[in-house]
Design a binder for these strands. Structure first.
Lengths: 186, 186
DNA sequence: AATCCTATCTTGCCATTGACAAGATGCGCC
DNA sequence: GGCGCATCTTGTCAATGGCAAGATAGGATT
């Protein structure tokens, strides 16, 4: 994936994060093993500790990256609430590993400054999408509307990832999400 | 908690499940330790394996119990979709340990017969709540409506548990959930 | 009543893991 | 040229999950 040439004087940190993303995608965030990451990166078992302190530290960095990526994704669909919701679900499915870490704060340090900043950016993108919509319709309560929009998109994404949805929903998350999210706009 | 007198010829299985529920509430489902459960129950470290095979087996049993409890909870508010949604969120908050296990299928055996049956009962209770509502209003699409209702309730519950919601939401989950869920009924 | 038998629980063991401590290595800076 | 610091390695320890083999007890069979 990312540049893996320059160990011992370069981007071990980045390589470890890439390996972690891969590993989380394979075994989930809870079963992540630092020693496995070290093996994937070709370094000793204690190398990760130097860059991230412990497992929680590494997942904190991953979560922060994820929130930044989400903020960026949401910003691209900023003027259309429905599309922002679809983008949210699509993010969850496409970047499942990020998503699964981001909303499991017991696995990382929720008080990390960088993480809080990134999460704030994502939240801002979400709210501005809702605000854009309500300005075009009734004066509605933006707080409540953004909560409702976030909840329905997040719930659908979570249920999708958990495999909890019935088969009839199909296998196209964007399409299925659009149908459900439209329920809010009526 | 539960009757702990009759070991060695009684309800170790039940005692272990009770201990597991407690432990999950304290450290989360991923950090659950079988050996810790054994200590809590006052038995040897290998005793749990006999009743549940492995950690996944134990969590499967816990999830099945949880789905049954949820089905029962939803059935009590069956004729009112809004109240069913509130009950769903309330269940997640009140029985957090159950909820956290139930929707993390990578931790248990999703193909377990008992579990599938229990999950089916819960799903049925949910859908019948939605059907009851739409019969009173427009002819609407029950499939889509139940998905939307489930998504918004599940999403709100999940975000609440993750501590992801902004402070202004307050500290009363039932009340906050009711406000958000009402957004679907308008 | 004696025996078997099966479910239940224990003891012992091994590989893996996270975390810590101490040491090696090498790059840049004075 | 030498020093210092960041980076990485080696070694170690306690805890865990899971397996295997053995002990124990209560009930059924004869």
């Amino acid at each position: 994936m990312t540049d893996t040439r320059a160990y011992h004087h370069g981007d071990l940190r980045r390589a470890l994060l890439a390996a972690a993303l891969e590993a989380v995608g394979e075994v989930g965030p809870a079963a992540l093993s630092l020693r496995d990451l070290a093996r994937r990166a070709g370094v000793s078992h204690a190398a990760p500790a130097h860059h991230f302190g412990d497992k929680a530290g590494l997942l904190t960095a991953l979560a922060a990256q994820g929130f930044d990526l989400l903020a960026q994704t949401l910003a691209e669909a900023d003027d259309d609430l429905l599309e922002a919701g679809v983008a949210y679900v699509d993010f969850a499915v496409t970047h499942r590993a990020y998503f699964e870490v981001m909303f499991r704060p017991e696995l990382y340090r929720a008080d990390d400054a960088e993480l809080i900043a990134a999460r704030g950016r994502a939240g801002g993108a979400l709210r501005s999408g809702v605000a854009a919509l309500s300005s075009g319709g009734a004066p509605a309560d933006t707080d409540r509307d953004s909560l409702a929009a976030w909840s329905i998109a997040h719930g659908f994404a979570t249920l999708w990832l958990a495999g909890a949805l019935p088969d009839r929903v199909g296998d196209n998350p964007r399409e299925a999400a659009r149908a459900v999210l439209r329920r809010l706009s009526t």
